[in-house]
Design a protein around this nucleic acid. Structure first.
Lengths: 184, 184
DNA sequence: GGCTACATGTAAGCGGTTACATGATTTA
DNA sequence: TAAATCATGTAACCGCTTACATGTAGCC
């Protein structure tokens, strides 16, 4: 049932990697929609190996440092495909601390509510800028079936999402400012 | 550090409630951005009570059924305010199984990729429709400082988010269909 | 009388985070 | 030679889910 195994199998389906390299992939490439640290990854790799979904060969770098380079097996590829073909129900809840705060913000002064909205807006604009910079690295839309095509779709989704959140936050700020101005 | 306590304190700041009623709030009112079941709520209420953040009085309904109606204390209100005033960093990762699948979808046939995108689109459209129905219940924008105003802002955000996700998914489908058509 | 909703708890297990623990290699 | 990075593991703890467990009240 655990999803981490599919994330690992998926990454290994793109490229053979060590546990260390996998953990870097989690914090750099796919951190927007999944993450894991080495303390989860190493035990999971052991489990996947025990069940025959991955295998590894040991490389020696330098004189004695052992590296386990993992690759996905045919059995692992079947498990990955099985999961990919299974339709996913969108979860009813996406936990979001900021939204929770906003929901209870009637306890706050109007200035403070605007302050917290502005703070979120700044952070979202920063993230949007970062994603737009990532998009610049693509000089054209990658052709289908390449791994880069999926990257592009996900990046596009991220940009659209951040843009909308920024619009929403701005609209919230505007609505909060309308009130006091009218009464003055 | 646990956020559940703030969710409970926030709900109790709106209205005195029993643990049972709280659990219903989680599954009906705020389920979009937080959730919890009674097996988490009851122990948490006990902890909050032990620390003086909430208190309760026992009501008897019928002849013998005991209900503990909880209310937030002054100390609890201070803790809630402290949290509300603390700026929240947006988390780097929002786990999303569908995006993870899409990221590895180069292993899939083009038809299957479109199928999974279409499936998500259907689900998102359904949710959007539901949120739009909720919005109809507001015949006007509630005035600031009322609890309903926050409800409205959150609902607006949900609608904007779902609309954008639908647009994104549609765009993904279009881009996946462009390729094959060209080659035919 | 039977079903659904009301009402309150505990326990086992899982996924995930943080900290503990060790050692080699590379680079400044 | 000291620091950063590479590399692999384990352990304790926490939040959350699922299941266990019990009993009352209201409705058909």
């Amino acid at each position: 049932m655990g999803k981490l195994q599919y994330a690992i199998l998926g990454l290994l389906s793109r490229k053979d990697m060590t546990g260390y390299e996998l953990s870097k992939e989690f914090t750099t490439t796919i951190f927007e929609f999944w993450n894991a640290t080495h303390s989860q990854i190493y035990p999971e790799l052991k489990r996947l190996n025990d069940n025959g979904f991955v295998e590894y060969k040991i490389d020696i770098s330098g004189t004695s440092l052992e590296k386990k380079t993992y690759s996905i097996t045919e059995k692992g590829r079947l498990l990955l495909m099985e999961w990919l073909e299974k339709p996913v129900r969108i979860p009813p809840t996406q936990k979001d601390e900021f939204r929770l705060q906003l929901f209870f913000s009637h306890n706050l002064s109007p200035e403070y509510r605007i302050k917290m909205l502005q703070n979120q807006l700044n952070q979202r604009q920063e993230r949007l800028q970062h994603l737009l910079n990532c998009q610049k690295k693509f000089d054209a839309v990658p052709s289908e079936h390449t791994a880069a095509f999926s990257d592009y779709l996900l990046l596009m989704g991220g940009i659209m999402r951040e843009e909308t959140i920024c619009q929403w936050l701005q609209k919230c700020i505007d609505m909060c400012q309308e009130g006091p101005e009218k009464t003055q």
